[in-house]
Design a protein around this nucleic acid. Structure first.
Lengths: 197, 197
DNA sequence: GCTTCTGACGAACGATCGTGCTAAAAAGGA
DNA sequence: TCCTTTTTAGCACGATCGTTCGTCAGAAGC
């Protein structure tokens, strides 16, 4: 990794932190340059355009999300434990400062067509598929009833996560996490295969 | 209502439409002036500052939300029918172009301190209370089990709404609404009071 | 040693940002 | 109708936006 790649990584880290506060659209070359102690033009040269920078920030955060949340969860035992691991990982991830940047981007870009939205859409589809796949793994393991709809499960669990996000981050509700856990328990209980007698 | 108030109403309508696309922070006096066919300074004079304008846009949309979603639902019979009415009303409201602007604002401002966030926080607390109140009304009516936690119910139902928002608006999933309905059914079934024998 | 390439900088560009100030136009009550 | 108040436009301001360009120190290759 050359010097260029190293500083670009630093820039992306800083950019992600800034984007978590002001959104991807609120990212500014000038403020980012000040933050990193670089000149505007020196920083700009790394990307060539603001849009290219936004795309790289998006990819950067998606990679981080994959390695910090998704991959660890996939090393948990298949079925219900894996669902719980993913859920816990996500809660921790969203509780870090600024919250999940991808969630913020999803609500920011839902009505702004363009390459950035396209990229995010692709990532979010992958995420939704991951949720559904983990759910259907639970069925295959015999943890969940055979008629469980994986995509229904995916949308339900995502709802619990999103409600936690707003309850904890905006409303500062100290019970948000407890309720999220209770929501997940209810979801798992409803999907649970009847105990073999 | 004098002429000033009338045009200010027009401006706020237009501003809300724009904010649904680009967010409250993305609102711009210049673009708003172009949209309404006014001069920048003429438009600006109605508000005195950009922040004051954002606050009025927020109030404007909150009022609209109250009269288009909350109030109609409150005229439905108490208990479960009222929950369903509120839910249906919200789904329709969020399916209009741009989606629910308050949801977008909630995710945009969760990390941006200031008067605008404070106002939004206040509104969102009211909304959460409304959800909880309607839930506890269901308990009082005997539709829901006595041990139903109204605030748990509120966070759960909000999760279903938020998951619908992203599934339908970003992912363009045609099954989003159907899953939201199934999610609500499951929630209501879990809370339902056991039928009197 | 000299050359070449890379990474960063400073200055400047036109455009647009939010915000004043002043004057004209419009509205409304007498 | 006249007069006052309200509403709008015009113009200008400093700041900042994204972007381009020429330059230059230092690392790398020969």
């Amino acid at each position: 990794m050359g010097k260029g790649d190293a500083t670009r990584e630093i820039i992306l880290d800083e950019a992600a932190g800034l984007a978590r506060q002001v959104g991807l659209g609120g990212l500014t070359i000038g403020s980012l340059a000040t933050r990193t102690g670089m000149s505007k033009s020196g920083l700009f040269a790394h990307f060539g355009s603001k849009e290219a920078m936004q795309l790289q920030v998006l990819d950067h955060e998606t990679d981080r999300f994959t390695s910090e949340v998704v991959r660890p969860a996939l090393s948990a035992p298949r079925g219900e434990p894996r669902v719980r691991a993913l859920f816990e990982g996500w809660l921790a991830w969203d509780s870090a400062d600024g919250g999940c940047p991808l969630v913020a981007a999803a609500f920011e870009l839902d009505d702004q067509p363009g390459p950035v939205r396209d990229r995010l859409l692709h990532n979010q589809r992958d995420w939704f598929d991951t949720l559904a796949t983990i759910a259907s793994t639970g069925v295959a393991e015999g943890h969940f009833r055979p008629d469980t709809d994986p995509r229904q499960f995916a949308q339900d669990i995502e709802g619990i996560m999103l409600a936690f996000h707003v309850a904890s981050r905006l409303l500062s509700d100290p019970d948000a996490a407890a309720r999220a856990h209770r929501g997940l328990d209810a979801l798992l209980a409803a999907a649970a295969a009847p105990a073999a007698p």
